[in-house]
Write a protein that binds this DNA or RNA. Structure first.
Lengths: 322, 322
DNA sequence: AACATTTACTAGAGCGCTCTAGTCACGAGC
DNA sequence: GCTCGTGACTAGAGCGCTCTAGTAAATGTT
């Protein structure tokens, strides 16, 4: 910085002004400083820059390195953060790297706020974190005091799935649920409500959350032979396993329409091409950054309603055979 | 820090010594300082700490947020880096966030070295980066001066696949290749060499890299009906699509054994359970950190041989029907 | 013409650490 | 009894920035 100042014939402070895009430098000088800077290959040291400032505008994000959905979210967070003038510090969670560890390392970097994607930490641990900075939990419905939650409206998601099938002409729609998995209750309720609202009686079969459970569910389905022309499943993994097995006996979508949930990478694969429910990552990200920003500037944030997901129609749904 | 010093009744320098685990403090004082620190909830500011030091011991890592393999690598890098006393700064690459952008942000944090996972940057761009700090490319075979490369031995991987099938008793083994995809040539050559070495004649069918191409390859295979009892494919995606279609006509592994490549998440799914070749992430990570360390301490590094992958036997391979 | 305001710039303290060069006391060695 | 280590500790500069307070000149106002 000193060098740039010398070459441009100005003070260090002026160089700082120019690189911060702050007012207080003439156009001519600005150009001269920038020229000197690029000649010397100068880049401001980000850490030193933050040191002297009260606001670091740094948001710490923990994410699961294995979850494709977290990947999508991180991407969306980058643009949302940039738009709001924030910077992101990533810290990965993995089997060999605990969430608490990931959080600690973010704390060392003096992040202004913590954004936790699908955290497994206990409510009390989350509340404890709140003492030093705002905490925003994304994608998990936690009840922890002082913690902001941004998540998808799973009830609405199930409703979308049912409505999509109704609009195609289906009347007998089965839901294969997620049992006790997190979010399963809400999706099941959403399905039930949507069915009742349409004057139809809900029909729920026990499922699970893995491909293997999906395959089992398919066997049960074939065995019981319920009068369903369409099935909505708890998630894409379950749906994939279900599809794999069911296709040995039935044609999809001609004999049976299938809707998943999550829009995972697998569901997008051309040979699976599963109709599914997608979380709105852009909206989730924007909401997250907005929440962080409010907490950091104003007073407390009001809880906001969950974000509606969208339907992604692919090749596993069609009108029922007449 | 000031506060901790005051409470413990020592100087700031002593607090620094204690928190750095540096020699020069008596056990009694050390305990007293630590007690004062935890009472006040003190954590050293990581950025400030690095500022005053010549060595930051910070390694910048770019990774693709969508690639599961990068997730595995990042995890392995964390432990390898920790063992060597380095810290990691992550920067994600995504469709909306270019690699150059990810690299720039790492540069702002004054990383000592750059670790790029499967970078798409041109060799010249990579070499340019070398000017400011060591650059280590992981998983991609690039020829760029001054850039260290750490990657998997794909020839050995193909050999493993072939040897596995040979040991099961197969003699007619077909390779469905990746065409012009990166790494495809090496895997094809590895297959050819292994076959010739066993005194068998190689047989290659054109494939691709996606599930759809795999499905096409399966149709071609069924049509041509080559006398193969086993197939090795360019990668897991191709293999998945291939399996999906082939299973409608043949039993796997009874009628046909199938080996993929990459050990992707998909291949691990219970209902697919694909025998495949896994890259050794721990070894790749260790090698990467070692390379970075050598560059940062000693003189130039000697190019090291690619790292041998391992075979992951699952349910798509068995002895051929007699 | 006298004063106020604005614009362009600088000096220097401060951010939270580390690190070098000390000081001081205590015991060993001659 | 004197020097010489050595271990425990401190003072203060410095890392690369930002930011407040201030100066000096140009412009506006009556």
């Amino acid at each position: 910085m000193e060098d740039v100042a010398r070459v441009a014939g100005v003070s260090r402070a002026l160089v700082s002004i120019v690189y911060r895009d702050a007012p207080g430098a003439s156009e001519a000088t600005r150009a001269r400083v920038l020229a000197a800077g690029s000649e010397l290959g100068y880049r401001p040291d980000h850490r030193a820059r933050l040191l002297g400032r009260t606001r670091t505008r740094l948001l710490g994000v923990t994410f699961d390195v294995q979850a494709p959905f977290h990947g999508d979210l991180v991407e969306a967070l980058y643009s949302a953060a940039e738009a709001a003038g924030y910077d992101l510090a990533l810290s990965a969670v993995a089997p060999s790297r605990q969430e608490s560890r990931a959080v600690q390392s973010l704390l060392d970097y003096r992040c202004e706020a913590l954004v936790l994607l699908g955290p497994q930490l206990s409510p009390s641990a989350l509340t404890a974190l709140t003492e030093s900075q705002p905490v925003i939990v994304v994608g998990r419905k936690v009840k922890a005091t002082g913690v902001d939650v941004v998540r998808t409206d799973d009830m609405a998601g199930s409703r979308l799935a049912v409505e999509h099938l109704l609009s195609l002409g289906h009347r007998s729609i089965l839901h294969i649920d997620g049992g006790k998995s997190s979010g399963a209750a809400e999706r099941r309720t959403g399905y039930r409500n949507a069915m009742r609202h349409a004057g139809l009686s809900p029909l729920v079969q026990t499922g699970g959350r893995t491909e293997a459970e999906g395959a089992d569910a398919a066997k049960t389905f074939l065995n019981d032979a319920p009068p369903a022309t369409a099935v909505t499943l708890f998630n894409d993994r379950l749906a994939t396993g279900f599809l794999d097995t069911i296709r040995q006996s039935l044609r999809v979508p001609q004999d049976l329409s299938v809707v998943g949930y999550d829009n995972t990478t697998i569901s997008r694969l051309s040979h699976i091409s599963l109709t599914t429910i997608a979380q709105n990552t852009a909206a989730l990200a924007a909401e997250t950054i907005a929440k962080a920003h409010t907490r950091l500037t104003d007073a407390p944030t009001a809880p906001t309603p969950p974000i509606p997901p969208t339907l992604v129609p692919r090749s596993t749904t069609s009108p029922p055979a007449s």
